[in-house]
């Protein structure tokens, strides 16, 4: 709609908006995270929700213990190979639209524990990630930043047309296969449909 007309209407006390804006506005101010912590980063996540940093200012304080009621999973901490199938399962149990924040070096790539035999080298091997926050652990401010980044992303999602949001696209999957425990490693070690690491090119 025409900007001038909008402001003109506003002066008259008439507020006009589109369904898409209203819908996204509602969603982005009431993101319910899953109450799910893995390791050290989870403590910073709790600190973010606690008194000083107060995630409630952004509408994200309603931590849900059940994935069925959550919009956002904050993967806060080291994902071990033993835990990875559970994380994927939790993600699959969340209703659409769902978002993922990978919090901390460990969730992104294995972080300081990358050489570990039982450490998954990044949760994006099995589930798609919306926002990555580096840090070990990221400060609460960094998590707030990631949260705002996610809100921005939600704000820009479109309901119709060619570039509409992924969760509205029936052809795109909303669940991903859960890896199985193998004799030496997880089977498969990464979801090839999701994870395509760059090949290192060297002489």
């Amino acid at each position: 709609m025409n900007e001038g007309l909008l402001s003109e209407l506003k002066k008259q006390g008439i507020f006009v908006t589109s369904l898409q804006e209203l819908y996204n506005w509602g969603r982005l101010n009431s993101i319910w995270p899953l109450q799910f912590g893995l390791a050290c980063c989870a403590i910073e996540m709790i600190a973010t929700a606690a008194s000083r940093y107060d995630l409630a200012r952004f509408g994200g304080e309603v931590f849900r213990p059940s994935p069925r009621q959550a919009d956002l999973i904050i993967v806060a901490g080291t994902v071990t190979k033993k835990m990875a199938p559970q994380v994927v399962r939790l993600y699959n149990q969340m209703p659409d639209p769902k978002y993922v924040i990978a919090m901390g070096a460990c969730a992104i790539s294995g972080g300081p524990f990358k050489q570990g035999y039982n450490v998954l080298k990044g949760i994006d091997r099995y589930i798609p990630v919306d926002v990555y926050i580096p840090g070990c652990p990221p400060r609460p401010e960094a998590l707030l930043h990631a949260f705002m980044e996610l809100q921005r992303k939600i704000e820009e999602q479109r309901l119709t047309g060619a570039g509409k949001a992924d969760h509205l696209e029936a052809s795109l999957p909303s669940e991903f296969p859960v890896p199985a425990f193998g004799e030496h490693d997880l089977q498969p070690p990464a979801n090839p449909a999701l994870f395509r690491p760059p090949a290192v090119e060297r002489n």
Partner: peptide, 24 residues
């Protein structure tokens, strides 16, 4: 106790080689 039941190796032995699963 720490690894899953299907796992067959004993990873703290000095000659254990972990799966080749990370970017360098």
């Amino acid at each position: 106790i720490l690894m899953w039941d299907e796992f067959v190796d004993h990873p703290m032995r000095k000659d254990y080689r972990e799966p080749d699963d990370y970017e360098y």
